[in-house]
Design a protein around this nucleic acid. Structure first.
Lengths: 188, 188
DNA sequence: GTCTATACACCGATAGAC
DNA sequence: GTCTATCGGTGTATAGAC
């Protein structure tokens, strides 16, 4: 279930438009003009929704994506089926979430430069949580705890790397292949 | 051997000072004021060395690091020993090059936002070349060509991911572990 | 080859009308 | 809740003295 802060509907709609801008240009590469254009709102209107400005917009985008990740990618992990089936469901959602690797990962985006100063602990916390959740399922599948955490961490690492290589090489096949092999790699 | 463009000694010394700034803050997060301070040169002096401005500074940093990567990391691969020994030598250099994962990868840094617009083909070309060079050694070691390329690509992916996770989690152990296991993963 | 001084656009952010 | 207009600051880049 999502931990999204309550927001007016119009604010939520604005956040959806801001996300792709931050995703593509990063925190510092994103300007209020871009955000204004993407959202269809004037700069002053953005400040109505986000009084603390750009940092708050980035934070809102981050939170939204985090909730979305939890609801779509992690949620299947806490289902009722066999661990393998749940992990396969996660991988399926993962492909969509990252658009086969074309979407930059917000965690990576927000771990650079000024964004790192602003959000380091938040990003670290999120990543650790997600690693733990995945590891928990592996433990449930009978894998020893340390091993489970290592494999979970390794998977996150590969996903991060795959997203970068997809962007550089303009080729989504290696992301697809990664995801295809992920269940076996995690469980066997 | 390096393909570095010839430059005056003072220009080369300046480039060395610029690199850490771009590495840490990315292309758009880096300002001329930062570069001026880091290099100890006034902004106008930077323009003497790099008439096309910030883009040229980033390009020079990119080229310098590329040459450095070739000279220190890839060079051992073309030595005379056994493939395994050469790959182990590469891994050793790799650890130093990335400072155990604390250094962001310039390829990743330059694949975002405006830098991507400026340098996309250049970055892509470099990465492809490096993947090919590593794959070539694997082929020499008796691995089938497609398999060799896949493993080489996978290694690059893991390195990229590891660098990101090190930065987010403030923990270099997973980078070290990755490098430790790399020779076996590539060859066995 | 380095500097000071400056040009001018755009940055993030705010005031205040509607 | 959105807008136009504008602020002060900083961005990249240049001119020109030394």
């Amino acid at each position: 279930m999502s931990a999204e802060k309550e927001r007016s509907l119009s604010t939520q709609k604005a956040i959806l438009k801001l996300i792709p801008v931050f995703r593509k240009y990063g925190y510092e590469g994103t300007t209020l003009s871009m955000l204004s254009q993407a959202s269809g709102l004037g700069k002053a209107s953005l400040y109505h929704h986000f009084p603390q400005g750009k940092a708050q917009m980035a934070r809102a985008a981050f939170d939204y994506i985090g909730s979305s990740f939890e609801d779509t990618v992690l949620e299947p992990l806490s289902g009722k089926g066999e661990p393998r089936e749940r992990i396969e469901a996660m991988c399926c959602s993962l492909k969509e979430f990252y658009d086969n690797g074309r979407n930059a990962c917000f965690l990576a985006i927000m771990s650079f430069g000024e964004a790192d100063n602003l959000f380091h602990d938040l990003v670290k916390q999120k990543l650790k949580t997600w690693i733990d959740i995945l590891a928990q399922v592996l433990i449930e599948a009978g894998i020893e705890a340390n091993q489970a955490k290592d494999r979970s961490t390794e998977a996150m690492m590969q996903i991060q790397g795959a997203v970068i290589l997809v962007r550089i090489l303009d080729d989504t096949t290696l992301f697809k292949k990664l995801i295809e092999n992920l269940p076996a790699q995690l469980l066997d």
